[in-house]
Design a protein around this nucleic acid. Structure first.
Length: 239
DNA sequence: GATCTATGTAGAT
DNA sequence: TCTACCTAGATCG
């Protein structure tokens, strides 16, 4: 954070916090808002007692009498005024984790696009929040390949995907990890050992290229879509 | 110890 | 479509 931004917040008391998609907002007095986006590498660490000496580049440190919180590697850590916050939120699609989300707004974008569904769902101006794990897994659960053109998605299929995103992401917040493996499709039920992603969650196809599908046993396929790794099962997600 | 990779996105080409 | 950004854990040799 530039020193001017640090000066704007240093010593101030945090009033409120809010998340919109992958963006975190901390509200401070006088309309000042700290905006944090973790990007690919950003990470918070926290603890109790005296904060440790800063290790590496600490972009933000928050403290109370009992707790401390450090932020390293974020894509964004900046102070915005209300107009800048409004502009940022205005370019985001509906967030499945928010009560004010309007899934019809996302579907209007999807149904008039020929782009692959995976690319559309990763586009934060279409849907705000889901990353490549949720998008990969929700498409598996829907039985649709990531290459499905947005235009071909019917309203019922979109409703199912949206509902699934809401449920999976709420569960992710509660558990602090991404689990997408449905009870009736558990690896245990399929007679195979559970596969825990290195991020700590159980998933069907994400980063499982070449391994066997947990549901049908076929090989999980991988490819690059919209610049991101994509994974799917050609049997469970037929064209 | 060096190199690779990645829950992402903005900006250049 | 490509590249840079930036950090840390995984993987390689």
């Amino acid at each position: 954070m530039p020193s001017s931004a640090a000066a704007a917040l240093s010593g101030r008391v945090l009033r409120d916090t809010e998340a919109y998609g992958k963006h975190l907002f901390h509200r401070y007095p006088a309309g000042r808002t700290l905006h944090v986006h973790l990007g690919l590498y950003g990470r918070f660490t926290d603890g109790t007692g005296e904060p440790p000496p800063p290790l590496g580049e600490v972009r933000l440190r928050m403290t109370t009498r009992k707790h401390w919180l450090d932020l390293r590697g974020p894509a964004a850590c900046e102070v915005l005024d209300p107009a800048q916050v409004d502009a940022l939120v205005a370019r985001l699609g509906p967030d499945p984790l928010r009560d004010d989300a309007d899934p019809d707004r996302a579907y209007a974008r999807i149904r008039r696009s020929n782009k692959p569904l995976a690319a559309l769902l990763l586009d934060q101006s279409v849907v705000a929040g889901p990353g490549v794990i949720y998008v990969t897994e929700v498409l598996f659960r829907a039985g649709l390949p990531p290459t499905t053109p947005g235009r071909s998605l019917d309203p019922e299929a979109w409703q199912d995907i949206w509902t699934d995103l809401v449920e999976l992401m709420r569960e992710g917040v509660e558990r602090g990890r991404i689990d997408t493996v449905h009870s009736r499709h558990t690896p245990e039920a399929m007679g195979r050992p559970p596969r825990v992603d290195r991020h700590g969650g159980e998933v069907y196809v994400y980063r499982r290229a070449g391994q066997s599908c947990l549901v049908c046993g076929g090989a999980v396929r991988t490819g690059i879509l919209a610049g991101r790794n994509s994974y799917w099962c050609t049997t469970c997600q037929p064209d």
